[in-house]
Design a protein around this nucleic acid. Structure first.
Length: 515
RNA sequence: GGCCCCAUCGUCUAACGGUUAGGACGUCGCCCCUUCAAGGCGAAAACGCGGGUUCGAUUCCCGCUGGGGCCA
Protein backbone atom coordinates (compact mmCIF):
# COMPACT_ATOMS: atom_id res chain seq x y z
CA UNK A 1 0.00 0.00 0.00
CA UNK A 2 1.26 3.45 -0.80
CA UNK A 3 0.93 6.28 1.62
CA UNK A 4 -0.78 9.54 0.73
CA UNK A 5 2.58 11.13 0.36
CA UNK A 6 3.79 8.56 -2.11
CA UNK A 7 0.53 8.81 -3.92
CA UNK A 8 1.10 12.46 -4.56
CA UNK A 9 4.57 11.86 -5.81
CA UNK A 10 3.38 9.13 -8.10
CA UNK A 11 3.06 10.41 -11.59
CA UNK A 12 -0.38 10.68 -13.09
CA UNK A 13 -1.14 8.01 -15.62
CA UNK A 14 -4.29 7.61 -17.68
CA UNK A 15 -5.41 5.12 -20.28
CA UNK A 16 -7.11 5.13 -23.63
CA UNK A 17 -8.93 1.81 -23.75
CA UNK A 18 -10.94 1.48 -26.96
CA UNK A 19 -12.70 -1.73 -27.94
CA UNK A 20 -11.89 -2.58 -31.55
CA UNK A 21 -15.36 -3.87 -32.31
CA UNK A 22 -16.07 -1.19 -34.90
CA UNK A 23 -14.49 1.76 -36.63
CA UNK A 24 -13.57 4.68 -34.43
CA UNK A 25 -16.47 7.00 -33.77
CA UNK A 26 -16.89 10.32 -32.04
CA UNK A 27 -17.39 8.75 -28.62
CA UNK A 28 -13.97 7.13 -28.84
CA UNK A 29 -12.47 10.43 -29.91
CA UNK A 30 -14.01 12.22 -26.98
CA UNK A 31 -12.76 9.61 -24.51
CA UNK A 32 -9.26 9.87 -25.98
CA UNK A 33 -9.30 13.66 -26.19
CA UNK A 34 -10.35 14.23 -22.60
CA UNK A 35 -7.75 11.76 -21.37
CA UNK A 36 -5.15 13.41 -23.56
CA UNK A 37 -5.98 16.90 -22.36
CA UNK A 38 -6.14 15.96 -18.72
CA UNK A 39 -2.91 13.98 -18.76
CA UNK A 40 -1.05 16.61 -20.76
CA UNK A 41 -2.13 19.35 -18.41
CA UNK A 42 -0.86 17.41 -15.43
CA UNK A 43 2.35 16.24 -16.98
CA UNK A 44 0.99 12.70 -16.92
CA UNK A 45 1.55 9.61 -19.00
CA UNK A 46 -0.92 8.01 -21.39
CA UNK A 47 -1.26 4.29 -22.04
CA UNK A 48 -2.96 2.93 -25.14
CA UNK A 49 -4.71 -0.36 -24.50
CA UNK A 50 -6.91 -2.27 -26.93
CA UNK A 51 -9.68 -4.01 -25.07
CA UNK A 52 -10.10 -6.87 -27.48
CA UNK A 53 -11.05 -9.71 -25.17
CA UNK A 54 -14.23 -10.21 -27.15
CA UNK A 55 -12.66 -12.45 -29.80
CA UNK A 56 -15.86 -12.65 -31.81
CA UNK A 57 -16.39 -8.97 -32.38
CA UNK A 58 -12.87 -7.56 -32.18
CA UNK A 59 -10.99 -7.14 -35.44
CA UNK A 60 -7.49 -6.03 -36.24
CA UNK A 61 -8.89 -3.82 -38.96
CA UNK A 62 -10.80 -1.85 -36.34
CA UNK A 63 -7.85 -1.64 -33.98
CA UNK A 64 -5.69 -0.27 -36.78
CA UNK A 65 -8.38 2.18 -37.74
CA UNK A 66 -8.57 3.51 -34.20
CA UNK A 67 -4.81 3.82 -33.82
CA UNK A 68 -4.45 5.49 -37.18
CA UNK A 69 -7.37 7.83 -36.49
CA UNK A 70 -6.13 8.93 -33.09
CA UNK A 71 -2.68 9.68 -34.47
CA UNK A 72 -4.23 11.70 -37.27
CA UNK A 73 -6.15 13.72 -34.72
CA UNK A 74 -2.97 14.41 -32.83
CA UNK A 75 -4.00 12.37 -29.81
CA UNK A 76 -0.85 10.45 -29.06
CA UNK A 77 0.20 8.24 -26.15
CA UNK A 78 3.40 7.39 -24.32
CA UNK A 79 3.03 3.65 -23.84
CA UNK A 80 1.49 0.82 -25.79
CA UNK A 81 -0.58 -0.09 -27.61
CA UNK A 82 -1.15 -3.13 -25.45
CA UNK A 83 -3.60 -5.78 -26.59
CA UNK A 84 -5.61 -7.55 -23.93
CA UNK A 85 -5.86 -10.56 -26.21
CA UNK A 86 -2.11 -11.03 -25.69
CA UNK A 87 -2.20 -10.71 -21.92
CA UNK A 88 -4.01 -13.92 -21.07
CA UNK A 89 -1.17 -15.22 -18.91
CA UNK A 90 -1.30 -12.19 -16.69
CA UNK A 91 -5.02 -12.49 -16.11
CA UNK A 92 -4.66 -16.19 -15.49
CA UNK A 93 -2.17 -15.54 -12.73
CA UNK A 94 -4.49 -13.13 -10.96
CA UNK A 95 -7.44 -15.43 -11.51
CA UNK A 96 -5.57 -18.31 -9.97
CA UNK A 97 -4.67 -16.15 -7.02
CA UNK A 98 -8.30 -15.26 -6.30
CA UNK A 99 -9.26 -18.90 -6.67
CA UNK A 100 -6.51 -19.95 -4.24
CA UNK A 101 -7.59 -17.33 -1.73
CA UNK A 102 -11.20 -18.49 -2.05
CA UNK A 103 -12.24 -15.03 -3.25
CA UNK A 104 -13.41 -16.57 -6.47
CA UNK A 105 -14.79 -20.01 -7.21
CA UNK A 106 -15.76 -22.34 -10.02
CA UNK A 107 -19.41 -22.31 -10.98
CA UNK A 108 -20.88 -25.27 -12.82
CA UNK A 109 -24.44 -24.05 -13.09
CA UNK A 110 -25.94 -24.39 -16.55
CA UNK A 111 -27.28 -21.52 -18.61
CA UNK A 112 -30.80 -22.95 -18.34
CA UNK A 113 -30.55 -23.21 -14.61
CA UNK A 114 -29.36 -19.62 -14.25
CA UNK A 115 -31.94 -18.32 -16.67
CA UNK A 116 -34.78 -20.03 -14.81
CA UNK A 117 -33.57 -18.64 -11.55
CA UNK A 118 -33.34 -15.14 -12.98
CA UNK A 119 -36.83 -15.31 -14.43
CA UNK A 120 -38.18 -16.40 -11.09
CA UNK A 121 -36.43 -13.57 -9.27
CA UNK A 122 -37.52 -10.98 -11.75
CA UNK A 123 -41.10 -12.20 -11.66
CA UNK A 124 -41.05 -11.48 -7.95
CA UNK A 125 -39.62 -8.01 -8.57
CA UNK A 126 -36.27 -8.93 -7.13
CA UNK A 127 -32.86 -8.16 -8.52
CA UNK A 128 -31.47 -11.10 -10.50
CA UNK A 129 -28.70 -12.39 -8.27
CA UNK A 130 -26.77 -15.62 -8.42
CA UNK A 131 -27.65 -17.89 -5.52
CA UNK A 132 -24.08 -18.65 -4.59
CA UNK A 133 -24.80 -22.35 -4.83
CA UNK A 134 -21.44 -23.42 -6.27
CA UNK A 135 -19.58 -21.49 -3.59
CA UNK A 136 -20.65 -24.27 -1.25
CA UNK A 137 -18.84 -26.89 -3.29
CA UNK A 138 -15.54 -27.99 -1.68
CA UNK A 139 -12.51 -26.77 -3.58
CA UNK A 140 -11.09 -30.24 -4.14
CA UNK A 141 -14.34 -31.43 -5.66
CA UNK A 142 -14.48 -28.45 -8.01
CA UNK A 143 -10.90 -29.00 -9.13
CA UNK A 144 -11.62 -32.64 -9.78
CA UNK A 145 -14.59 -31.72 -11.97
CA UNK A 146 -12.44 -29.26 -13.88
CA UNK A 147 -9.82 -31.97 -14.42
CA UNK A 148 -12.55 -34.18 -15.81
CA UNK A 149 -13.23 -31.48 -18.34
CA UNK A 150 -16.47 -30.13 -16.97
CA UNK A 151 -17.28 -26.66 -18.23
CA UNK A 152 -17.29 -23.98 -15.59
CA UNK A 153 -16.99 -20.23 -15.25
CA UNK A 154 -15.09 -18.33 -12.58
CA UNK A 155 -17.28 -16.36 -10.24
CA UNK A 156 -16.12 -13.59 -8.01
CA UNK A 157 -17.29 -13.88 -4.43
CA UNK A 158 -19.20 -10.64 -3.99
CA UNK A 159 -20.04 -8.70 -0.93
CA UNK A 160 -23.17 -7.36 0.67
CA UNK A 161 -21.73 -4.04 1.70
CA UNK A 162 -22.29 -0.64 0.24
CA UNK A 163 -19.64 0.84 -1.98
CA UNK A 164 -19.08 4.49 -2.70
CA UNK A 165 -16.61 6.29 -4.86
CA UNK A 166 -15.95 9.87 -5.69
CA UNK A 167 -16.37 10.89 -9.29
CA UNK A 168 -14.70 14.08 -10.52
CA UNK A 169 -17.64 14.84 -12.78
CA UNK A 170 -20.55 13.62 -10.66
CA UNK A 171 -19.44 13.65 -7.07
CA UNK A 172 -20.21 10.78 -4.73
CA UNK A 173 -21.86 7.72 -6.21
CA UNK A 174 -23.13 4.87 -4.04
CA UNK A 175 -24.01 1.29 -4.78
CA UNK A 176 -25.50 -1.49 -2.75
CA UNK A 177 -23.42 -4.54 -3.58
CA UNK A 178 -25.94 -6.95 -2.14
CA UNK A 179 -27.78 -6.37 -5.39
CA UNK A 180 -24.80 -7.43 -7.44
CA UNK A 181 -24.21 -10.91 -6.11
CA UNK A 182 -21.39 -13.15 -7.24
CA UNK A 183 -20.55 -12.13 -10.78
CA UNK A 184 -18.64 -13.97 -13.47
CA UNK A 185 -15.08 -12.74 -14.04
CA UNK A 186 -13.87 -15.36 -16.50
CA UNK A 187 -15.32 -17.87 -18.88
CA UNK A 188 -12.36 -20.07 -17.98
CA UNK A 189 -8.77 -19.52 -16.89
CA UNK A 190 -7.77 -18.36 -20.36
CA UNK A 191 -10.71 -16.08 -20.95
CA UNK A 192 -11.03 -13.39 -18.32
CA UNK A 193 -13.91 -10.97 -18.68
CA UNK A 194 -14.04 -7.22 -18.89
CA UNK A 195 -14.63 -6.26 -15.26
CA UNK A 196 -11.64 -8.35 -14.29
CA UNK A 197 -9.17 -7.49 -17.05
CA UNK A 198 -9.69 -3.76 -16.57
CA UNK A 199 -8.78 -3.93 -12.93
CA UNK A 200 -5.74 -6.11 -13.52
CA UNK A 201 -4.49 -3.96 -16.37
CA UNK A 202 -5.06 -0.67 -14.61
CA UNK A 203 -3.06 -2.04 -11.71
CA UNK A 204 -0.27 -3.57 -13.81
CA UNK A 205 0.04 -0.41 -15.85
CA UNK A 206 -0.02 1.91 -12.88
CA UNK A 207 -3.11 3.84 -13.91
CA UNK A 208 -3.99 6.60 -11.47
CA UNK A 209 -6.95 8.23 -13.23
CA UNK A 210 -9.77 6.48 -15.01
CA UNK A 211 -11.56 8.81 -17.40
CA UNK A 212 -14.24 7.00 -19.38
CA UNK A 213 -17.84 7.08 -20.53
CA UNK A 214 -20.74 7.07 -18.13
CA UNK A 215 -21.83 3.72 -19.51
CA UNK A 216 -19.18 2.33 -17.20
CA UNK A 217 -20.59 3.76 -13.98
CA UNK A 218 -22.53 0.59 -13.30
CA UNK A 219 -19.40 -1.50 -13.77
CA UNK A 220 -17.41 0.54 -11.31
CA UNK A 221 -18.61 -1.08 -8.06
CA UNK A 222 -17.72 -4.53 -9.40
CA UNK A 223 -14.29 -3.30 -10.33
CA UNK A 224 -13.83 -1.76 -6.92
CA UNK A 225 -14.75 -5.08 -5.33
CA UNK A 226 -12.13 -6.84 -7.44
CA UNK A 227 -9.58 -4.17 -6.54
CA UNK A 228 -10.24 -4.77 -2.87
CA UNK A 229 -9.90 -8.51 -3.25
CA UNK A 230 -6.60 -8.03 -5.03
CA UNK A 231 -5.40 -5.38 -2.62
CA UNK A 232 -5.19 -2.77 -5.33
CA UNK A 233 -5.50 0.94 -4.75
CA UNK A 234 -8.59 2.62 -6.18
CA UNK A 235 -7.85 5.04 -9.01
CA UNK A 236 -9.54 8.40 -9.34
CA UNK A 237 -12.68 8.17 -11.45
CA UNK A 238 -14.24 10.61 -13.88
CA UNK A 239 -17.25 9.49 -15.86
CA UNK A 240 -18.01 11.54 -18.92
CA UNK A 241 -21.52 11.98 -20.25
CA UNK A 242 -22.39 9.74 -23.12
CA UNK A 243 -22.39 10.84 -26.77
CA UNK A 244 -25.76 10.15 -28.35
CA UNK A 245 -27.25 9.89 -31.80
CA UNK A 246 -30.19 11.96 -32.97
CA UNK A 247 -32.57 9.48 -31.29
CA UNK A 248 -30.86 10.12 -27.94
CA UNK A 249 -29.50 6.64 -27.54
CA UNK A 250 -25.82 5.77 -27.25
CA UNK A 251 -24.04 6.50 -30.50
CA UNK A 252 -23.29 3.36 -32.46
CA UNK A 253 -22.99 1.92 -35.94
CA UNK A 254 -26.72 1.97 -36.48
CA UNK A 255 -26.70 5.76 -36.38
CA UNK A 256 -25.26 5.73 -39.88
CA UNK A 257 -22.11 7.55 -40.83
CA UNK A 258 -20.31 7.77 -37.54
CA UNK A 259 -16.89 6.39 -38.46
CA UNK A 260 -14.19 9.03 -38.14
CA UNK A 261 -12.35 7.47 -41.06
CA UNK A 262 -15.35 8.31 -43.19
CA UNK A 263 -15.36 11.92 -42.01
CA UNK A 264 -11.68 12.13 -42.72
CA UNK A 265 -12.20 10.69 -46.17
CA UNK A 266 -14.85 13.27 -46.93
CA UNK A 267 -12.50 16.03 -45.99
CA UNK A 268 -13.13 17.02 -42.42
CA UNK A 269 -10.10 18.55 -40.78
CA UNK A 270 -8.59 17.19 -37.61
CA UNK A 271 -8.76 20.58 -35.90
CA UNK A 272 -12.49 20.88 -36.63
CA UNK A 273 -13.14 17.41 -35.25
CA UNK A 274 -11.12 18.20 -32.14
CA UNK A 275 -12.84 21.54 -31.55
CA UNK A 276 -16.23 19.97 -32.11
CA UNK A 277 -15.58 16.98 -29.89
CA UNK A 278 -14.20 19.06 -27.06
CA UNK A 279 -17.44 21.00 -26.87
CA UNK A 280 -19.49 17.85 -26.67
CA UNK A 281 -19.94 17.89 -22.95
CA UNK A 282 -17.46 20.58 -22.06
CA UNK A 283 -17.28 24.35 -22.39
CA UNK A 284 -14.98 26.96 -20.95
CA UNK A 285 -17.75 28.97 -19.32
CA UNK A 286 -17.03 31.90 -21.60
CA UNK A 287 -18.41 32.70 -25.00
CA UNK A 288 -15.31 31.57 -26.79
CA UNK A 289 -16.17 28.54 -28.89
CA UNK A 290 -13.38 28.29 -31.40
CA UNK A 291 -10.56 26.40 -29.77
CA UNK A 292 -7.27 25.08 -31.03
CA UNK A 293 -5.57 22.16 -29.33
CA UNK A 294 -3.15 24.58 -27.65
CA UNK A 295 -6.02 26.60 -26.26
CA UNK A 296 -7.79 23.47 -25.09
CA UNK A 297 -4.66 22.40 -23.27
CA UNK A 298 -4.71 25.76 -21.57
CA UNK A 299 -8.39 26.02 -20.65
CA UNK A 300 -9.78 22.49 -20.41
CA UNK A 301 -10.83 21.19 -17.04
CA UNK A 302 -12.82 18.17 -16.00
CA UNK A 303 -14.92 20.05 -13.49
CA UNK A 304 -16.56 22.01 -16.26
CA UNK A 305 -17.70 18.82 -17.90
CA UNK A 306 -21.44 18.49 -18.41
CA UNK A 307 -23.35 15.72 -16.64
CA UNK A 308 -26.07 15.11 -19.21
CA UNK A 309 -25.46 13.25 -22.45
CA UNK A 310 -24.91 15.24 -25.63
CA UNK A 311 -26.41 14.63 -29.05
CA UNK A 312 -23.92 14.47 -31.88
CA UNK A 313 -24.99 17.15 -34.33
CA UNK A 314 -23.26 16.80 -37.71
CA UNK A 315 -24.58 20.13 -38.97
CA UNK A 316 -22.57 21.96 -36.40
CA UNK A 317 -19.52 19.96 -37.34
CA UNK A 318 -19.99 21.16 -40.92
CA UNK A 319 -20.02 24.73 -39.74
CA UNK A 320 -16.83 24.31 -37.77
CA UNK A 321 -15.13 22.49 -40.61
CA UNK A 322 -16.02 25.29 -43.00
CA UNK A 323 -14.60 27.74 -40.54
CA UNK A 324 -11.30 25.90 -40.26
CA UNK A 325 -11.13 25.48 -44.02
CA UNK A 326 -11.47 29.25 -44.39
CA UNK A 327 -8.49 29.72 -42.11
CA UNK A 328 -6.13 27.83 -44.42
CA UNK A 329 -3.78 29.61 -46.77
CA UNK A 330 -4.31 28.89 -50.48
CA UNK A 331 -1.17 26.78 -50.54
CA UNK A 332 -2.29 24.70 -47.58
CA UNK A 333 -5.74 24.27 -48.97
CA UNK A 334 -4.45 23.28 -52.40
CA UNK A 335 -2.34 20.59 -50.79
CA UNK A 336 -5.31 19.35 -48.78
CA UNK A 337 -7.55 19.27 -51.85
CA UNK A 338 -5.07 17.69 -54.23
CA UNK A 339 -5.94 14.09 -53.30
CA UNK A 340 -9.58 14.79 -54.11
CA UNK A 341 -8.73 16.15 -57.55
CA UNK A 342 -6.62 13.11 -58.19
CA UNK A 343 -9.20 10.66 -56.91
CA UNK A 344 -11.86 12.26 -59.11
CA UNK A 345 -9.67 11.74 -62.16
CA UNK A 346 -9.20 15.44 -62.84
CA UNK A 347 -5.52 15.60 -62.03
CA UNK A 348 -2.72 13.09 -62.32
CA UNK A 349 0.88 13.19 -61.29
CA UNK A 350 3.38 12.42 -63.96
CA UNK A 351 7.00 12.76 -63.06
CA UNK A 352 7.47 16.15 -61.50
CA UNK A 353 4.39 17.58 -63.13
CA UNK A 354 0.72 17.49 -62.44
CA UNK A 355 -1.45 17.08 -65.47
CA UNK A 356 -5.02 17.92 -66.24
CA UNK A 357 -6.34 14.50 -67.15
CA UNK A 358 -9.21 15.90 -69.17
CA UNK A 359 -7.09 18.00 -71.50
CA UNK A 360 -3.63 16.47 -70.95
CA UNK A 361 -2.20 19.92 -70.28
CA UNK A 362 0.45 20.47 -67.66
CA UNK A 363 -1.08 22.23 -64.70
CA UNK A 364 0.71 25.47 -64.08
CA UNK A 365 1.84 26.36 -60.63
CA UNK A 366 -0.83 28.40 -58.95
CA UNK A 367 -3.70 26.94 -60.95
CA UNK A 368 -5.01 24.72 -58.17
CA UNK A 369 -4.19 27.34 -55.57
CA UNK A 370 -6.32 29.88 -57.36
CA UNK A 371 -9.22 27.48 -57.65
CA UNK A 372 -9.23 26.51 -54.00
CA UNK A 373 -8.70 30.08 -52.86
CA UNK A 374 -11.78 31.18 -54.74
CA UNK A 375 -13.82 28.18 -53.63
CA UNK A 376 -12.69 28.44 -50.05
CA UNK A 377 -15.76 30.20 -48.59
CA UNK A 378 -18.02 27.62 -50.22
CA UNK A 379 -16.41 24.51 -48.80
CA UNK A 380 -17.88 22.66 -45.86
CA UNK A 381 -15.65 19.69 -46.53
CA UNK A 382 -12.67 19.22 -48.81
CA UNK A 383 -14.30 16.61 -51.03
CA UNK A 384 -16.77 19.22 -52.25
CA UNK A 385 -14.00 20.92 -54.18
CA UNK A 386 -14.43 18.38 -56.96
CA UNK A 387 -18.09 19.01 -57.72
CA UNK A 388 -17.58 22.72 -57.42
CA UNK A 389 -14.63 22.95 -59.76
CA UNK A 390 -14.99 20.35 -62.49
CA UNK A 391 -15.61 22.99 -65.15
CA UNK A 392 -12.05 24.25 -64.88
CA UNK A 393 -10.68 20.95 -66.09
CA UNK A 394 -12.90 20.14 -69.00
CA UNK A 395 -11.97 20.84 -72.59
CA UNK A 396 -15.53 21.40 -73.63
CA UNK A 397 -18.54 22.71 -71.80
CA UNK A 398 -21.95 21.30 -72.45
CA UNK A 399 -24.93 23.49 -71.67
CA UNK A 400 -28.19 24.71 -73.14
CA UNK A 401 -27.98 28.08 -74.90
CA UNK A 402 -30.99 29.36 -72.96
CA UNK A 403 -28.89 29.19 -69.84
CA UNK A 404 -26.98 32.18 -71.21
CA UNK A 405 -30.07 34.39 -71.00
CA UNK A 406 -30.25 36.89 -68.20
CA UNK A 407 -33.81 37.69 -67.15
CA UNK A 408 -35.81 38.48 -70.31
CA UNK A 409 -32.82 39.09 -72.58
CA UNK A 410 -32.99 37.72 -76.11
CA UNK A 411 -30.31 35.50 -77.58
CA UNK A 412 -29.39 38.35 -79.88
CA UNK A 413 -28.72 40.63 -76.93
CA UNK A 414 -26.70 37.88 -75.31
CA UNK A 415 -24.63 37.39 -78.42
CA UNK A 416 -23.98 41.13 -78.48
CA UNK A 417 -22.99 41.14 -74.83
CA UNK A 418 -20.58 38.26 -75.41
CA UNK A 419 -19.16 40.08 -78.39
CA UNK A 420 -18.65 43.12 -76.23
CA UNK A 421 -16.82 41.03 -73.66
CA UNK A 422 -14.63 39.44 -76.29
CA UNK A 423 -13.65 42.87 -77.50
CA UNK A 424 -12.86 44.10 -74.05
CA UNK A 425 -10.88 41.03 -73.06
CA UNK A 426 -8.94 40.79 -76.27
CA UNK A 427 -7.35 44.13 -75.53
CA UNK A 428 -5.87 42.90 -72.30
CA UNK A 429 -2.36 41.53 -72.61
CA UNK A 430 -1.63 38.16 -71.07
CA UNK A 431 0.73 39.84 -68.63
CA UNK A 432 -2.01 42.12 -67.33
CA UNK A 433 -4.58 39.35 -67.10
CA UNK A 434 -5.99 39.07 -63.61
CA UNK A 435 -9.18 39.21 -61.61
CA UNK A 436 -8.85 42.82 -60.61
CA UNK A 437 -7.89 44.12 -64.03
CA UNK A 438 -10.78 42.28 -65.71
CA UNK A 439 -13.26 43.52 -63.19
CA UNK A 440 -12.07 47.11 -63.56
CA UNK A 441 -12.42 47.04 -67.29
CA UNK A 442 -15.83 45.42 -67.41
CA UNK A 443 -17.24 47.48 -64.61
CA UNK A 444 -16.11 50.78 -66.02
CA UNK A 445 -17.52 49.70 -69.36
CA UNK A 446 -20.85 49.00 -67.70
CA UNK A 447 -20.78 52.36 -65.94
CA UNK A 448 -19.90 54.16 -69.16
CA UNK A 449 -22.52 52.27 -71.05
CA UNK A 450 -25.22 53.16 -68.60
CA UNK A 451 -24.16 56.79 -68.39
CA UNK A 452 -24.03 57.21 -72.13
CA UNK A 453 -27.38 55.59 -72.64
CA UNK A 454 -28.87 57.28 -69.64
CA UNK A 455 -30.65 54.12 -68.68
CA UNK A 456 -29.16 52.63 -65.55
CA UNK A 457 -31.97 50.10 -65.39
CA UNK A 458 -30.08 47.81 -67.69
CA UNK A 459 -28.34 46.01 -64.86
CA UNK A 460 -24.92 44.47 -64.97
CA UNK A 461 -26.41 41.02 -65.11
CA UNK A 462 -26.85 41.52 -68.86
CA UNK A 463 -23.12 41.37 -69.22
CA UNK A 464 -22.08 39.36 -66.20
CA UNK A 465 -24.54 36.49 -66.41
CA UNK A 466 -23.60 35.40 -69.92
CA UNK A 467 -19.98 35.77 -68.89
CA UNK A 468 -20.53 33.37 -66.01
CA UNK A 469 -22.37 30.77 -68.06
CA UNK A 470 -19.91 31.03 -70.92
CA UNK A 471 -17.06 30.25 -68.57
CA UNK A 472 -18.57 27.45 -66.51
CA UNK A 473 -21.70 26.24 -68.30
CA UNK A 474 -23.80 26.25 -65.16
CA UNK A 475 -25.66 28.70 -63.00
CA UNK A 476 -23.75 28.36 -59.78
CA UNK A 477 -20.10 29.19 -59.66
CA UNK A 478 -17.47 31.45 -58.23
CA UNK A 479 -17.37 35.03 -59.60
CA UNK A 480 -16.92 35.36 -63.35
CA UNK A 481 -13.76 37.44 -63.04
CA UNK A 482 -12.36 34.86 -60.69
CA UNK A 483 -13.12 32.15 -63.22
CA UNK A 484 -11.50 34.15 -66.00
CA UNK A 485 -8.49 34.61 -63.80
CA UNK A 486 -8.19 30.86 -63.23
CA UNK A 487 -8.73 30.00 -66.89
CA UNK A 488 -6.33 32.57 -68.28
CA UNK A 489 -6.66 34.73 -71.36
CA UNK A 490 -6.68 32.11 -74.03
CA UNK A 491 -9.22 29.72 -72.57
CA UNK A 492 -11.45 32.52 -71.43
CA UNK A 493 -11.62 33.95 -74.93
CA UNK A 494 -12.23 30.52 -76.40
CA UNK A 495 -15.12 29.87 -74.09
CA UNK A 496 -16.56 33.29 -74.78
CA UNK A 497 -16.41 32.74 -78.52
CA UNK A 498 -17.97 29.31 -78.17
CA UNK A 499 -20.79 30.85 -76.17
CA UNK A 500 -21.25 33.60 -78.70
CA UNK A 501 -21.52 31.06 -81.47
CA UNK A 502 -24.00 29.11 -79.42
CA UNK A 503 -26.14 32.17 -78.76
CA UNK A 504 -26.11 33.36 -82.34
CA UNK A 505 -26.90 29.89 -83.63
CA UNK A 506 -23.74 29.48 -85.66
CA UNK A 507 -22.13 26.99 -83.41
CA UNK A 508 -20.98 23.56 -84.33
CA UNK A 509 -19.21 21.02 -82.20
CA UNK A 510 -15.91 21.70 -83.93
CA UNK A 511 -15.88 25.40 -83.19
CA UNK A 512 -16.35 25.01 -79.45
CA UNK A 513 -12.86 24.17 -78.43
CA UNK A 514 -9.86 23.04 -80.34
CA UNK A 515 -8.63 20.62 -77.77
C1' G B 1 -37.56 -6.12 -14.02
C1' G B 2 -33.52 -4.26 -10.53
C1' C B 3 -29.79 -0.65 -9.84
C1' C B 4 -27.24 3.80 -11.43
C1' C B 5 -26.95 8.50 -14.02
C1' C B 6 -29.23 12.76 -16.10
C1' A B 7 -32.96 17.01 -17.12
C1' U B 8 -32.37 25.39 -19.84
C1' C B 9 -34.36 27.23 -27.07
C1' G B 10 -34.76 21.81 -32.42
C1' U B 11 -29.14 20.85 -31.13
C1' C B 12 -24.44 22.15 -28.09
C1' U B 13 -24.62 25.13 -23.89
C1' A B 14 -24.07 30.01 -20.07
C1' A B 15 -26.32 31.13 -15.36
C1' C B 16 -23.11 29.09 -9.30
C1' G B 17 -31.09 32.67 -5.09
C1' G B 18 -32.76 38.54 -7.51
C1' U B 19 -30.73 38.61 -15.35
C1' U B 20 -35.27 41.87 -20.43
C1' A B 21 -32.71 33.73 -18.95
C1' G B 22 -26.79 35.03 -22.51
C1' G B 23 -23.90 32.73 -26.68
C1' A B 24 -23.16 29.22 -30.89
C1' C B 25 -25.17 25.92 -34.86
C1' G B 26 -29.63 25.42 -37.45
C1' U B 27 -34.26 28.03 -39.09
C1' C B 28 -36.59 32.63 -40.91
C1' G B 29 -36.22 37.91 -42.59
C1' C B 30 -33.28 42.00 -44.34
C1' C B 31 -28.57 44.01 -46.33
C1' C B 32 -24.58 43.10 -49.85
C1' C B 33 -25.40 41.33 -54.90
C1' U B 34 -24.09 38.86 -61.64
C1' U B 35 -25.31 33.04 -59.25
C1' C B 36 -23.96 30.05 -55.02
C1' A B 37 -21.35 30.78 -50.77
C1' A B 38 -18.91 33.83 -47.26
C1' G B 39 -19.88 38.35 -44.51
C1' G B 40 -23.12 42.14 -41.86
C1' C B 41 -27.78 43.19 -39.29
C1' G B 42 -32.23 41.40 -37.12
C1' A B 43 -36.25 37.84 -35.56
C1' A B 44 -38.66 33.53 -33.74
C1' A B 45 -37.13 29.79 -30.29
C1' A B 46 -35.91 27.05 -23.65
C1' C B 47 -35.99 26.89 -17.57
C1' G B 48 -40.55 19.06 -17.93
C1' C B 49 -44.52 18.78 -13.76
C1' G B 50 -45.95 19.10 -8.52
C1' G B 51 -44.68 20.09 -3.70
C1' G B 52 -41.59 22.35 -0.17
C1' U B 53 -37.18 25.89 1.84
C1' U B 54 -36.82 31.27 1.16
C1' C B 55 -38.77 38.01 1.14
C1' G B 56 -37.54 35.77 -3.65
C1' A B 57 -36.35 30.13 -7.05
C1' U B 58 -34.02 27.98 -13.67
C1' U B 59 -30.71 27.76 -9.42
C1' C B 60 -31.33 24.28 -2.90
C1' C B 61 -34.43 19.72 -1.03
C1' C B 62 -38.31 15.87 -1.97
C1' G B 63 -41.66 13.38 -5.19
C1' C B 64 -43.43 12.50 -10.11
C1' U B 65 -42.68 12.31 -15.19
C1' G B 66 -39.36 11.77 -19.04
C1' G B 67 -34.68 10.26 -21.26
C1' G B 68 -30.30 7.39 -21.02
C1' G B 69 -26.96 3.58 -19.21
C1' C B 70 -25.50 -1.14 -16.92
C1' C B 71 -26.87 -5.92 -15.63
C1' A B 72 -28.86 -11.42 -18.99
Amino acid sequence: MTTDNEKQLKKMKVRMPPSPTGYMHIGTVRMALFNYLYASQHDGQIVMRMEDTDRERSKKEFADDIIDGLRWLGLGWDEGPYYQSQRGEIYKRYLQRLLDENKAYWCFCSQDELEAQKQYQMSRGEAPIYSGKCFEMPRAQAEELIRQGRKAVVRFRGSKKKIAFNDIVRGRIEFDCSLTGDFVIAKDLDNALYNFTVVVDDCEMGITHVIRGEDHISNTPKQILVQEALGIEMPVYAHLPIVMGADRSKLSKRHGAVAITEYRRQGYLAEALINFTAFLGWNPGTEKEIYSMEELLRDFSLDKVQKGGAVFNPVRLDYLNGLYIRQKTPAQLAELCLPYFIEAGLVSKEGQDYKNRQTAEIIEPGFLEKIVAYQQPRLKKLSEIVDLSGYFFTGQLDYDKDLLKWKDATLKEIADALDELINLFSKIETGDWGRQKLEEIVMSRIAGFNLAQGKPEKDRGYLLWPLRVALCGQKMSIGPFEMADVLGREKTLKRLMAAKDLASGTSSAETLFDN
